[in-house]
């Protein structure tokens, strides 16, 4: 579609009416593009701009588009202001990183093993497994939340492993939540590695482990990175499970939960709330820009093949 301008006969290009229409059309396209860009970016910009505004500017009658006297006070308030008495802000950051990286690591290993099984072996229950994964991927965590909570509580009472009010339970839950999608993503990558390559290595005397590390891993690595970043974003942003599991154990709060707590407590201190939101948002944004292309193909799987 976009190449039509290039192949158009030269005679048409000189027709002034058509030319005016084309210019008008192109201007319209650019304007629409700018409008879409503004609509997408403005709330993010507003979050960051507000975070840098001093209190007086936030209360001003006329809002200012750019912070007139930028300040770091709001960030200082979030980081050093004892959001929750007795807990350091960095503790929440460490909690979020622990839970996120822990669940990403566990999830990546589990997903890779399962993806190899699904892509490389034909076994009884294989189709059942794939269909189960697709169904599980669809059932909302929000509906299961009561049962997950009760189940974790029963496990906790039965085994003595602390799952509620601790980071362990969150790591377990988050590893599971992304698994169906990451398994399906990785399955495609594993299946794309030519089997002949592995067979050739095996004929040359390579064992299972050598084939895995030297042949499969390097080729599947990009997929593993994509799946891991997807799991990272899911875990980093997750809210309802943390809200349910952590309850009053404020020293285990993750960043989203801290943000919600902060909002509940200082509901109209928008400068600090936006500063805290920015601190939560910016890392995930960077990751996102890095991985978005693969996320689209991962989520829609084969549908784009055409």
């Amino acid at each position: 579609m976009s190449a039509t301008t290039a192949t158009r006969p030269a005679a048409r290009r000189t027709d002034p009416l058509l030319r005016a229409r084309r210019i008008a059309g192109r201007t319209g396209l650019y304007a629409a593009g700018l409008a879409v860009f503004a609509f997408s970016v403005f709330p993010v910009y507003w979050m960051i701009a507000t975070a840098f505004k001093p209190g007086g500017e936030l209360f001003a009658r006329e809002p200012t588009l750019l912070p007139r006297n930028p300040t770091l006070d709001n960030f200082d308030q979030v980081v050093n202001g004892n959001v929750i008495p007795g807990v350091d802000f960095w503790q929440f950051l460490v909690n979020s990183l622990t839970v996120t990286l822990g669940s990403v690591a566990v999830g990546a290993v589990l997903a890779l093993l399962a993806a190899i099984a699904v892509a490389r072996f034909r076994f009884r229950l294989r189709t059942t497994l794939i269909v189960t994964l697709m169904v599980v991927q669809m059932v909302p965590v929000e509906a299961l939340i009561i049962s997950i909570f009760i189940n974790f509580r029963q496990i906790q009472e039965g085994t003595g492993v602390e799952l509620l009010g601790t980071l362990t339970g969150l790591v377990l839950a988050y590893s599971a939540v992304s698994l169906p999608i990451t398994i399906m993503m990785l399955r495609g990558f594993v299946a794309a590695v030519p089997k002949e390559l592995e067979e050739a290595a095996a004929i040359d005397g390579a064992g299972h482990w050598t084939v895995f590390w030297r042949i499969l891993m390097p080729l599947v690595a990009p997929g593993l990175v994509a799946a891991s970043i997807f799991a990272f974003i899911t875990a980093w942003n997750e809210f309802i499970i943390a809200l349910t599991f952590l309850g009053r154990s404020s020293e285990t709060y993750t960043l989203p939960l801290t943000l919600s707590y902060y909002f509940g407590r200082y509901g109209t201190d928008w400068g600090s709330i936006m500063a805290a939101s920015s601190l939560l948002t910016v890392p995930v944004m960077i990751f996102f820009l890095f991985v978005q292309r693969r996320m689209v193909s991962g989520l829609t799987m084969g549908a784009v093949k055409g």
């Binding site: 970016v41 993010v44 507003w46 989203p256 939101s277 996102f288 978005q292």
Partner: peptide, 21 residues
């Protein structure tokens, strides 16, 4: 890239910004 910033914003931050807006 601009639209992706909206996509990448965590649900909780997005909701807070819109409440503020």
């Amino acid at each position: 890239v601009g639209t992706m910033l909206a996509w990448a914003t965590p649900a909780i931050s997005a909701s807070l910004v819109f409440r503020w807006l």
